[in-house]
Design a protein around this nucleic acid. Structure first.
Lengths: 135, 135
DNA sequence: TTTCTATCTAACAACAGTTGTAAATTAGGG
DNA sequence: CCCTAATTTACAACTGTTGTTAGATAGAAA
């Protein structure tokens, strides 16, 4: 798969790819870095970023910018949406299609739309729970 | 309005508020800063950030994190959505309501959802146009 | 298998956006 | 007109991310 794009298959690239697909999570670059470091202490954060970008431009993963402080990377490329916790930044997939969400030409303001993302913001179970305890 | 919250009315605060409401834009903090500097060269970027946060927590404006590199601030607090240009980061309001976009409890994953944002990504008229010329 | 080279990685510095801190300034009540 | 708490400024620091370059390495070629 790397090879298809004329990219060499290095242990670093393999690790990044594997870590992303193991966690059905949406890890940040730093989280990927930390996980790989357990088995490959020499890997650099720079390489993780690089590889994540490579994978993204290959269309193998998707970069999510959801205002949680840092970018998250999603191995699920199929169209889907997200629940985002305002407290802890957790991101959870929403597998549901909302076909009604399409803009009539009159509202496009001249844009050429290539993707539609729906973000449900609120509190994740953990944060909502700890909230209740605290108050 | 500042006074309602026990905040003093300073020229800096008034300027930030006015600039935001003049531009129906979604300016970044830096953009607000630059505009105010024309008439008040002594204002500091720190104060702009501070005031934007104050306004946001008063519910007078909304902070948008759309992955365009920096936060944008939206004086329109009523529920609406956005068109975002992947090329230049321009943000345009979409005044349309999508009532169908509501998650059934089975898909909530335990989250308590407080807001739903729809982001239409693509190319704005300017960028789409310059594209055509370039290719 | 060994050589060779273009690609890749690591180290490090730098950068952008944003926030912390503390001293100097000022709004606005008394 | 004072006085003081609130505010602003200046500046440093911090986080997430990217640029650069020298050294290391995958993998094609011999």
């Amino acid at each position: 798969m790397f090879r298809d794009q004329g990219l060499k298959i290095t242990p670093q690239r393999v690790s990044v790819f594997r870590v992303l697909h193991d966690n059905a999570d949406h890890p940040t670059a730093e989280a990927v870095f930390d996980q790989i470091r357990d088995e490959m202490p020499s890997i650099s954060l720079r390489t993780v970023y690089q590889t994540l970008h490579d994978l993204a431009s290959m269309g193998e993963i998707r970069q999510l910018d959801l205002g949680t402080g840092s970018a998250r990377f999603d191995p699920n490329v199929k169209s889907h949406h997200h629940l985002v916790c305002d407290k802890c930044g957790r991101v959870t997939d929403v597998h549901a299609s909302f076909d009604g969400v399409r803009l009539p030409r009159t509202k496009l303001a001249g844009y050429r739309v290539s993707s539609t993302e729906i973000v449900f913001r609120g509190e994740c179970p953990d944060c909502a729970g700890s909230n209740a305890v605290a108050s």
